[in-house]
């Protein structure tokens, strides 16, 4: 009896220690980015978010407005493209699990999850940037949409499939048509899972650098040139500026990384507050 108790205790301690070791790097990253980035945001105040980057020799580093605007534009448009498409595909898969299209969509989605996102950027580069002869924000949106689609689809399919069948039976028994069952019952019972998938896909899109290298390319002299001009993005700016030797640009990179972190947290908090869990 004593022995078993001891084994149990030792085991618990080991599990807790392993868990702490596993989470430690995440806390380390969060703490480090905050330590480097927060002072820069505070020093520069609001202008950090409203100015374009200053010259490398300027007294102050300027701001990250082009990166913010580009990220906002591309993430929102990519979401508008990806969420309806992927959600409809997921609804179709759950309604017709044995259809050939369902199998095709599943295989495509799995492969897209595995593909390096830089290849998605190169695909858009070949299909859109080369033919039109220009890097554009919209090309970046498309690349990000393709990055998002498999995430939204996978989470949506899981959420929809997890809706207990008994509610769906009850809905059909009331005389609801298929579309009514989906709209009034399935999608609403699954709302938390759907929102979770969208939030994860959006953070994915917000944090991607690789697909933008060959599509939106980056442009920092104006805040936002429009959908048909090159555009900047937070991760792109961080990635490019952190590698330079200029203090001003490195400061923008740290401040930008911190801003991205805050945006992540806000997104998940907002998603949690807006979309309530359905209890059964």
């Amino acid at each position: 009896m004593d022995d078993r108790f001891l084994v149990d205790r030792v085991f618990t301690v080991i599990v807790v220690v392993i868990a702490i070791i596993a989470i430690l790097p995440i806390f380390h990253i969060i703490a480090y980015i905050t330590w480097r980035g927060l002072p820069i945001v505070i020093d520069n105040g609001l202008s950090f978010f409203t100015d374009v980057p200053a010259a490398v020799v300027a007294e102050k580093p300027g701001g990250i407005a082009p990166a913010l605007a580009g990220t906002a534009f591309m993430t929102i448009t990519a979401t508008l493209i990806a969420v309806p498409l992927a959600t409809l595909a997921a609804i179709f898969s759950v309604e017709y699990p044995n259809h050939v299209l369902t199998k095709a969509v599943r295989v495509t989605s799995r492969s897209l999850l595995e593909v390096a996102t830089i290849l998605i950027g190169m695909l858009i580069f070949v299909l859109l940037v080369l033919p039109t002869g220009r890097f554009t924000a919209l090309a970046g949106s498309l690349a990000l949409a393709i990055v998002m689609i498999p995430y939204v689809y996978t989470y949506a399919e899981l959420a929809l499939i997890s809706v207990p069948k008994t509610y769906i039976e009850a809905a059909y028994a009331l005389g609801m048509k298929r579309a009514q069952v989906i709209f009034y019952v399935t999608v609403r019972v699954a709302r938390r899972g759907l929102a979770r998938g969208i939030a994860i896909a959006v953070t994915k899109a917000m944090g991607e650098t690789a697909p933008l290298l060959f599509t939106a390319f980056g442009a920092r002299s104006v805040i936002f040139g429009g959908p048909f001009e090159p555009a900047d993005a937070l991760p792109l700016m961080v990635f490019q500026f952190i590698q330079t030797g200029y203090d001003n640009w490195r400061a923008l990179a740290w401040g930008g990384a911190f801003t991205l972190l805050v945006l992540y947290l806000l997104l998940f908090i907002i998603a949690r507050i807006l979309v309530k869990e359905v209890r059964y």
Binding site: T166, Y167, A170, A171, A173, L174, G175, V189, V278, R279
Partner: peptide
């Protein structure tokens, strides 16, 4: 089929009010 279903009211073995 919808006309048929609307003629019947059904109660299932386990209570299943719509949770949302």
């Amino acid at each position: 089929v919808y006309t048929v279903r609307r003629m019947f009211g059904m109660v299932f073995q386990n209570p299943n009010p719509f949770p949302h």
